[in-house]
């Protein structure tokens, strides 16, 4: 039996975002939302561990009221219950404040063996929340995890390094930040989506977690996002004239110089 808490984020669907070309800004109005892609890998791994070892999975999401949609999807994927941390005070916090709020919620839940997060989320990909959360909880952590094997109180993990795989062993409890290579998230069936509506979802506000509102969210954060812009990608449109052999040689030189080929 294993008690798992999986953290996931409700984000804007980046594939649906429109760019306002006039001022190079992203238009967030009316943008579709979803569970961050890599967080689905985290949920999938949590559910697989439960299916194999028994136990429960609690989904934990920090977001606005519209995050209920993502919470329901996580329940459809196999989480047994969920906690939605929704309070205007939590909004626009940096990664450290987000991790702090999550840690307070996890302390309130109390019992856990494994906490699972993604390595990063598809909107900002700071990669900080998982490690910071482990620090707040004072438990060990493993990041870039591509394989999890649980045996008794010990867990063996494969970590995806740039040039190889590192295998580590750790005692419970711990925090695992998974890599997207770890699994292929399932599509919940229609009946699973329907029954997700009957599962327990509790909403917690700052006061429920003993958090002083001014210490979290935008006000409590050290990092402030001042603007979001789209990188400019203008084409150079260089034309090489001359005979085929001359121009192809110059083209090759230019490609080498630009680092397109090496």
């Amino acid at each position: 039996m294993v008690e798992i808490i999986v953290c996931f984020k409700h984000v804007v669907d980046e594939s649906e975002l429109k760019v306002d070309r006039a001022n190079n800004k992203i238009n967030f109005e009316g943008a579709k939302t979803k569970i961050s892609d890599d967080d689905k890998n985290a949920i999938e791994e949590a559910v697989r561990l439960k299916e194999k070892n028994g136990g429960t999975v609690i989904g934990l999401c920090l977001g606005k009221a519209d995050a209920r949609k993502s919470v329901k999807e996580a329940l459809a994927m196999g989480c047994d219950k969920a906690r939605l941390l929704s309070d205007p005070a939590f909004q626009d916090g940096d990664a450290i404040r987000t991790a702090y709020v999550l840690s307070q919620a996890i302390k309130r839940i109390g019992k856990y063996d494994i906490i699972i997060t993604a390595t990063g989320t598809t909107d900002v990909y700071s990669g900080i929340v998982g490690p910071a959360l482990a620090e707040f909880l004072e438990i060990p952590q493993a990041t870039f995890v591509s394989k999890v094997a649980l045996a008794g109180d010990k867990v063996t993990l494969d970590r995806l390094m740039e040039e190889g795989v590192e295998t580590v062993e750790c005692d419970l409890p711990l925090l695992i930040a998974v890599a997207r290579e770890i699994n292929q998230p399932r599509f919940p069936t229609l009946i699973q989506i329907m029954s997700a509506g009957k599962k327990e979802v509790v909403e917690w506000k700052a006061s429920d977690l003993g958090i002083e509102a001014s210490t979290v969210g935008k006000n409590g954060s050290l990092v402030q996002v001042t603007s979001t812009q789209v990188p400019k990608s203008a084409r150079k449109k260089i034309l090489f004239e001359g005979s085929a052999s001359e121009s192809s040689e110059r083209l090759a030189d230019a490609l080498l110089k630009e680092g397109v080929v090496n």
């Binding site: 949609k69 999807e73 229609l190 329907m194």
Partner: peptide, 8 residues
């Protein structure tokens, strides 16, 4: 509910 089912 129905839109979430169909979207999924």
């Amino acid at each position: 509910e129905y839109n979430q089912l169909l979207e999924s």
